[in-house]
Design a protein around this nucleic acid. Structure first.
Length: 493
RNA sequence: GGCGGCAUAGCCAAGUGGUAAGGCAGAGGUCUGCAAAACCUCCACCCCCAGUUCGAAUCUGGGUGCCGCCUCCA
């Protein structure tokens, strides 16, 4: 089977062939660090994390680089408001970024270049663009001459003559800065420093990089002239990625990336979640409100990555119930392995997907792979996980309620391991610790005593008393399970 | 105005020519003193119209609606 993915550049699905067999160079256009990440960022980060995990699982050696844009007007504004510095603001939100991503189980990148650490590379690139006639200085600024790059527009599929400058209502064509451009479509590579702003010295004077150039420089610096996958949100296709192509390819004469992948937006009431609309929920707001990180991950992965997903409380509640099922399946080995006679449940490697050997030719794994090979169809992949989890949940319940399963321990072991391994490819993990009950409320012996009292009440047909005891325990998070034969077991919620 | 995308059950969502995965919610049943839990079963002809085809959710043409981008954005 071959992995196919949708390439924004060609507007179709293509089979994936990296530049160097077995190796993948991947760059994800990360965040501008001027505030906490919201659910839109979460989606992008989780999706590219899954793409990366899946490529690894498929046997590729993936080098994954993600940048931080730490020079930007918005960071400066924030610093000004707070009376702090750009660096202080950037550091704080980079720190917050890592905290959020750790909770979401997003793997660390191999490298996190920052714009402020790449000033040399940025300046070199601008010089080369100048020498080749793609850039021109103007009063301390340097601009990219868009019309000099014949292929401009190839990624976003637009022609210069069709573009309506200012159509988004965000470009003030009367802005004095814009007057320095030879052409309204040109964009800044280097901006002359305004008083009080952080600045780096250069042959054009004191200044700082424009928005797009840092990515061109960082990719070249850390990964080379041509990479395999360049990823980001679809709101970056134009102008950001279009401009990156113009900058990089004008200098190197080589394709910047073989495959351009873009994720769809998170919407709220059908509208894009964004800072400017003010309709955003930050990752930490959501997680701190009690939503499990894996629920957010599932919410993101239930849809195809290129389509928009609408964020609602109902959606999260629905996913929460789904996650409970998946979690039951993932914890199956911990809860039922010993009674099933598995002998290694005390081993330190027990439950570690890295130590599990599963049959890659099984129908289940093949179906998972077929779905994921088709442009990372995580929804199809999840269907496979749910089938496994449902069956394990069912067998687990049989073990709890009837004392025996309908499937032999060896097969259950295979199914459980397959589930754990495939879930891991999607970054979905459950731990017993997360399930640990609140201790100290009611003691086990206390519960057993109450159950005995209820048994006596039931035997005397005093059902009001029996129900009272059940309700009282229920209020304390103790669930009673009446089994055939008058036996009652219990568990903590 | 230009470019691009989407439209499948109450909700979310796969499926791109052979008769609709999966999740959530819901219904019926078994069990139970009742309940809960558990288990079993059920639950769509795919926005509209016209074509192509033996056959279309899937292809073509035309509509309708929604969304994104057009230099802040993941």
């Amino acid at each position: 089977m071959t992995l196919t993915l949708y390439n924004t550049l060609t507007r179709r699905k293509e089979s994936f062939e990296p530049l160097e067999p077995g190796k993948v160079l991947m760059y994800y256009c990360g965040v501008t660090v001027y505030d906490y990440c919201h659910l839109g960022h979460a989606r992008a980060c989780v999706i590219w994390d899954v793409v990366r995990r899946y490529l690894r699982w498929r046997g590729y050696d993936v080098r994954y680089v993600q940048n931080f844009t730490d020079i930007d007007d918005k960071i400066l504004n924030r610093a000004r408001q707070e009376g702090s510095s750009m660096q202080e603001v950037a550091e704080r939100f980079i720190q917050a970024y890592f905290e959020d991503m750790t909770r979401l189980n997003v793997m660390e990148a191999d490298d996190y270049p920052r714009a402020t650490h790449t000033i040399d590379g940025i300046q070199r690139l601008i010089h080369e663009l100048e020498q080749k006639g793609y850039a021109y200085p103007a009063d301390g600024d340097v601009y990219y001459a868009v019309r000099a790059f014949a292929e401009y527009g190839k990624l976003s599929g637009r022609k210069l003559e069709d573009m309506q400058v200012g159509a988004s209502g965000r470009v003030d064509t009367d802005d004095p800065d814009a007057q320095r451009k030879r052409d309204p479509v040109d964009f800044a590579l280097w901006k002359a420093a305004k008083p009080g702003e952080p600045a780096w010295s250069s042959t054009w004077g004191e200044g700082r990089p424009g928005w797009h150039i840092e990515c061109s420089a960082m990719v070249r610096d850390r990964l080379g002239d041509t990479i395999d996958i360049h990823a980001g949100g679809n709101d970056l296709v134009f102008p950001h990625h279009e401009n990156e192509i113009a900058q990089s390819e004008a200098v190197t004469g080589k394709p910047l990336a073989r495959y351009w992948m873009h994720n769809g937006m998170v919407t709220v009431g059908g509208e894009k979640m964004s800072k400017s609309l003010g309709n955003f929920t930050t990752i930490r707001q959501l997680l701190d409100s009690g939503v499990e990180p894996m629920v957010l991950r599932l919410f993101i992965l239930q849809a195809q990555y290129r389509k928009p997903i609408d964020f609602t409380d109902e959606a999260i509640a629905s996913i929460h119930n789904g996650w409970e099922t998946l979690k039951e399946g993932l914890l199956f080995g911990y809860k039922h392995g010993k009674p099933l006679g598995w002998t290694d449940t005390e081993d330190t490697s027990f439950g570690d997907p890295a130590a599990m050997r599963i049959s890659e030719n099984s129908d289940t794994v093949q179906r998972f792979q077929a779905a994921m090979d088709d442009d990372f169809n995580t929804s199809g992949g999840l269907a496979v996980l749910f089938e496994l989890a449902k069956e394990l949940q069912k067998e687990g319940n049989r073990l709890t309620h009837e004392g025996k399963a309908a499937i032999d321990p060896h097969t259950l072991r295979q199914e459980w391991q397959t589930l754990v391994v495939l879930a891991q490819v999607l970054g979905l993990e459950a731990t017993l610790a997360a399930e640990s009950p609140d201790e100290g409320t009611v003691s086990d012996s206390d519960i057993e005593g109450q159950i005995e009292q209820r048994r006596v009440a039931k035997a005397a047909k005093n059902f009001a008393e029996a129900d009272r005891i059940r309700n009282e325990l229920s209020a304390q998070g103790i669930i009673l399970i009446d089994k055939p034969g008058g036996i009652t077991t219990w568990r903590r919620e």
